[in-house]
Amino acid sequence: MSTKVVEAIHLSKSYGTVKAVDDVSLTIEANKIYGLLGRNGAGKTTIMHMITAQLFKTSGELRVFSEEPYENNNVLRQVCFIKESQKYPDAFRVNDVLASAALFFPNWDAGYALELLEEFRVPLKRRMKKLSRGMLSAVGIVIGLASRAPLTIFDEPYLGLDAVARSLFYDRLMEDYALYPRTVILSTHLIDEVSRLLEHIIVIDGGKLLLDEEADLLRGRAYTVTGPAAKVDSFVSGKKVIHEELLGGFKSASIYESLIASEQRKAESLGLDFAPVTIQQLIVYLTNNSKSRKEAVV
């Protein structure tokens, strides 16, 4: 079996003249945790809907488990897509939702689902309509984890969840992922919180693919230098500056390239300080609509 779980080639989706997804080509490999990041309206959700055959592509090719996903049970039986906007039948209680999920996910673990539900403190008999936003998200997370689908996609899974519940989600995801390896795509705004989980990062901006990189490589991809403005200026000349801040006579500049050790030692002796740029900061810089983005990406 191919290790390519998702393969998108020149994938596009237009609504009239608006291009929600514009010529995106990417590959998702088996048994890895992916972060699909980007600003609101960047096209992340549209891509995930197309992968799960809930929306139709305008052009391009899309293969999931080497097959076209639309109306294809070979693919759909292996996919679980948890989305923030999921609707439930009005009459359904939490237990009805779990029982229904059990009908369609071949690897469903009912015992695990109940265990998780208890941990997230969601009442089993409560009507879905009466759940708070956070509990509604928790139900989605429970389905996503207990489905043990070979491709599990979480789109903004923790709207309204408190910090305790979020960290519970990260812990359970990591534990279960270790026991039952699968491909996970996580789309979120809370990049700092999840960045330690992510193995690969894909950034979408304005419907286009902006970044597709191993998380480890990305961590060393940029750094911030701080010090007296004049010294910083001379250090950064000729480098790709993605962010600058001036405070009094001091300046900090973030640079989009790997730091060379010899250069760092030389600069430190001049009184400059270095710090890594977190993935969240990096993505904020890259997707912030300013001239810096174009410079960085070129």
């Binding site: 989305k83 609707k87 439930y88 039948p89 369609f104 996910f105």
Partner: peptide
């Protein structure tokens, strides 16, 4: 209006 979006969310094929 109610069951279809839920079924689609559980990866059910439209034909099924």
């Amino acid at each position: 209006s109610q069951t279809f979006p839920f079924a689609l969310g559980l990866s059910v094929r439209r034909k099924d």
